[in-house]
Every structure is written in C-alpha cells, then in structure tokens.
Design a protein around this nucleic acid. Structure first.
Lengths: 291, 291
DNA sequence: AAAGGAATAAAGCGTAAGCTTCATTCTTCT
DNA sequence: AGAAGAATGAAGCTTACGCTTTATTCCTTT
C-alpha cells in the first residue's frame, strides 16, 4: 500500500488533471479499487474507464489489472502481517532492532499517555479549565523544550477563546507585560527538565501583581509546582522531557477541548472566522485549493 | 466471511472428497481465494479448476467469481468496520461530558498514534533517518500549528547530531540561507492544514539549490508531499491538525530516536555536554548562529 | 472381476473486463 | 483570435478467466 501511495506521490505532478482526480480517489479509497472494475472507477470519479487505465500507465503499471492486483495484495497482506492492535499489545517480548523501533517508541508514548490519563485528578482538571475560561487575559510561557508546548497552547487558546499571548523571553518586554497584569489575568507556565530559570522568574514576577498561575509540569515539587495555583502533572520519561511530548500534548488537547466544550458556540464562530482568512480551507484539502 | 464459513460448514457433508479439500483450503486461507484465479486454486489444492468451480456450485454460488467477490468484500469490509478510523469520526463537533472528557481525548490520541504506527512504511522511515544522518546541515521549517513541531525538531536534532537550524520565516533572511545550500543539505518541512504557503515557498526555493527534502505531513498529496524526497505521513483528525499533535510528536520521537540509535556514542557525548552546561545559554537555534 | 455410475480433469467456448484506436474537446502559446 | 498540441471519452478489439462439455479415472456393488 505504502509503495503505491509513494508511487502516486512521486508521479503526481506529471499527471493530467483528470488523472489527479483518479489519484486522489485511489489514495482515499483503495478498497474500492480492490473491489471494482476500471469502468466503475471511471464512473465513481466522474472521469472514464480510459482515463483510469491511462492513470495506471502514467504510474508505470502495465495496466489497471496490475494496479488492482497490487492494491489487493497490499491491503490483504497488511491485514495479515501487522494489525495495529496486535502490534501494540505484545510489548513484553522486546526485540530491539531497527525494524520495530517505530513500534516500540510509539508504544512507549501510548503507555505514557495512559499513565498521565490515570494520574490526572479530575477536580484539578476542572479547576484548570475554569481558570482558563474565566481569565481576562492569558500569557503563556515556556522555554527550550517547553517552548513548543507554550507556542502551541498560545496559538490554540487564542483560537478558541482569544486574548492569549505568548511570552517569548527577553525578546519581549517582560516588565511592560507584567505591569498590565492584575488578578484577573492567568499565566500558564510550562516547566520540564531541565527547568529553565527564566520561566520561574517570570512567574514569580507576575505573581506580585496577583495573577493566577496554571502550571504544567512533570513534578508537583518542581520549581513551578510550588508557585502554581493549579498544577497539572504529565508523566514523561526521565530525565528529559524531550521524549514525553506526546503525553503532554495529549494532556493539552484534553485541556483545550475542555475549554472549547465549555463554550462551544462561541468557539465555532471563532473557528469560522479563522477559517475565512487568506483563502485557505479548513477542511480536507483538495489539489484545487492548493493552486 | 462468517457467512461463507457458515455456508461451508452446513454443506460440508454433501461435498465430494476433492471438494472437501477445497473447502478446507477456503476456510484456511480465504485471502488466497481473494487474490488468485480458480485455476491457481486448483493447483494449490492439487485438485483442478473444474473441481473448484463445482465446489462453488455445491455451496449455492453462481460460480467462482461470486464466491471470490463475496470473500473479497467480507475481508475488506471487516477491515473497515472495526478499524480505528471509526473512532475518530464522531469526535469533531460533539459536546463531551466533562467527566470522561480526559479519558476520551486521550484514548483518541492513542488511536491516532496506533494508526500512524500502522501506516508507517519501514523502508521510508529508514530513508528518512538516513537523510538526517547524512546531511551536512539541516534546516527545519514549519509555521502556525507546525511551528511547535519545527521548533522541537530543530532543538532535538541540534542536540543529537548538531548543525541544525530553524527557519522562522521572514524574521530570518531566507535568501542568504538558501544561498549557502547545496545538495548535501537537508530541509525538514512540516505541513499540516491549514497549509502555510510560506513553507512551500521556502521549500521550492531551497530545491533550486538541490537540497534534499524530508516532508512531514498528514497527506501524501499535500503541497509538501509533492515536493518532498521522502514523506512521512502522520494520521491526524480532520480538518485541523491542532488535535493531532500527540501522534505527530510520537512520530518525531521515533525519528529522532532512530537518528540517535544510529550514532549512539556520539549522541551520549553531546548530551553530557548539554547537561553539564551551567545556566541556560542554550538557545533556540537559528540561522544566525552560523553567521 | 466386471459393469455401472459418480467424480475428476483436460480441452474448448463464451463473456466480461481490460486495452487500443480515433474522433472530439479543451489548453496553451504565439 | 487562431492554430498546434495535449487530454479526454466513445466505440471497437483482444485477452484472460470463468464456465461447459466431454473423455478418463476411480470407486462401488453384485
């Protein structure tokens, strides 16, 4: 399967307009190819049998039959060799080796997500959501590894509720930002090993103005943990959080989803506005929209 | 499938000796039926094409084609019904009860990770790792949602192999960066909906200098997919990738782990140095840092 | 053991589906 | 705007595969 998709991707630009239509169809629903004739695919794609066959030639196949056979084989083989569920179950016997590296790494992430999930205190989580919803303005802060977390959180919260900004360190003027703060503001601080001192400094300075602090960390007793009004803890591999991003993002997604769910109509409205910007489409992309 | 097996079981006693041989074969490896002609099945069962066809009649089918079609459909449909795809269909606009929200969100992420895992082609993955290892210099690019991905990747790759920088958009001088490039450079480009046009422009400009491009996207046919030498696909919820970060980070972790594993002693050395640093002068790598 | 009958496989037939050709439409470039 | 060329789809051609017929083998029964 992957071979076929890869082949289509490589040759895509050389295809004609109608052939691109067929290409998208093949990638989108290979099963239909496996089960139906070239003529039928012509109908379904609103092209013609001929175009479908020529699409096969363009990809280097000897004809529709060849493509169909390969798709059938790959669909059925993948079924047999590596069902995703099966793979993820048998983590005990661990042969390392290049081959199943991806599998192991991802399984590890699944495990961290599940641990994080089970360690989350529901009451705390609700408090965190409330903090976000009720804040007048939000400032997100996080450096190094945590910067990507902060960046994403800022972006997403700005989309779903607005009034959120990202403090990016000395580039921004911390003093003037802090000056504006009051007790209705919220600072969301990310702090994972190795804990950046700038984060904690910023939070401490902000607290003098009475802001609320939502901390997200791997440890209740981390520097941020001690400063925060509410602390959400994500389980990550030690010592570095470099490898725990999946679990943290999963937690963040839960958080943002919680915020979104609490004020859904407003969020939908915002998303629509965002959507309308600059001619990009928010839904499944088609080549037409890519120009 | 179950229908077919049931049908065989019912009629089994009435079958002739050779037909029973065929019956056992069909139950044992229906996939082979799905993929091969009646003649071939005749050979494999050491009976004959004729017997295979008469076996179909005996079960009440109109012929071999009918049996084959039904087997194909049932094999592929079962794939569809209980596939993880179903899980994520109903998540988009639905209001979720507060109580199990965390759980549901995280389970969804687990599902996406598993899908990504099962859709990854090992060969492509290895190629991606090789590209990274063999590159002289690496530039990472990604905007909006993808910026956090790019940022993290840049940070991490710089740690484990060095010579990696992040292109942050017009802040950096794209022209002078691109000027330096040659065919030993690698550009890692992130592109998720809504696809930022800056990313594709940068990549296209870079390609004129002969650089290699590693694309990471949600769609083989996305703008980046078409430009990339190697494309890794992550499964994310549609329409936006906002909610698919966990799966993408999981993929990235696999990638970086792959790179690290390939040159482990050197990486360990680097990490020691990084940890030994006092203070926090390690900064987000930018193109300036080469100046 | 021989005859009748069922089961089987080889050979030939027919049809569905893939493929090719050609006329028409759409694009692009001057 | 017009001409040259590419892309497209309809109609006819070809082949592969399923199916039928027929000859052979194997089993059963007396």
């Amino acid at each position: 399967m992957q071979n076929i998709k890869e082949q289509i991707r490589k040759g895509y630009q050389e295809l004609t307009t109608r052939q691109k239509t067929v290409a998208k169809f093949v990638i989108g629903q290979p099963k239909t190819i496996a089960l139906h004739s070239a003529q039928k695919i012509g109908e379904l794609t609103e092209t013609s049998e001929t175009t479908v066959i020529r699409f096969c030639y363009a990809l280097g196949y000897s004809g529709y039959s060849a493509l169909q056979t390969e798709i059938r084989e790959s669909l059925l083989n993948s079924d047999e060799e590596e069902g995703p569920l099966k793979n993820y179950r048998d983590t005990t016997g661990e042969l390392i080796g290049e081959n199943n590296l991806i599998q192991r790494v991802m399984e590890q992430d699944v495990a961290f997500i599940q641990q994080t999930l089970s360690s989350i205190n529901n009451e705390l989580f609700t408090k965190a959501v409330d903090l976000i919803i009720q804040a007048k303005k939000i400032v997100v802060v996080g450096f190094r590894t945590s910067y990507s977390l902060a960046n994403w959180t800022s972006l997403t919260l700005n989309l779903i509720r607005g009034d959120t900004s990202l403090y990016r360190g000395p580039i921004d003027d911390a003093d003037s930002i802090i000056m504006e703060m009051d007790e209705h503001w919220l600072v969301i601080a990310f702090s994972f090993p190795r804990y950046a001192s700038e984060t904690i400094s910023f939070v401490q300075a902000a607290k003098t103005k009475g802001v609320k602090v939502l901390g997200i960390s791997d440890d209740e007793l981390s520097p941020i943990g001690l400063e925060a009004n509410v602390l959400l803890k994500a389980i990550t591999p030690q010592p570095s959080a470099l490898n725990g991003m999946a679990a943290i993002f999963s937690l963040l997604k839960a958080l943002t989803t919680g915020v979104a769910a609490a004020d859904w109509p407003k969020v939908q409205d915002r998303v629509r506005t965002y959507d309308g910007q600059s001619g990009f489409e928010f839904h499944i992309p088609t080549t037409e929209s890519w120009g």
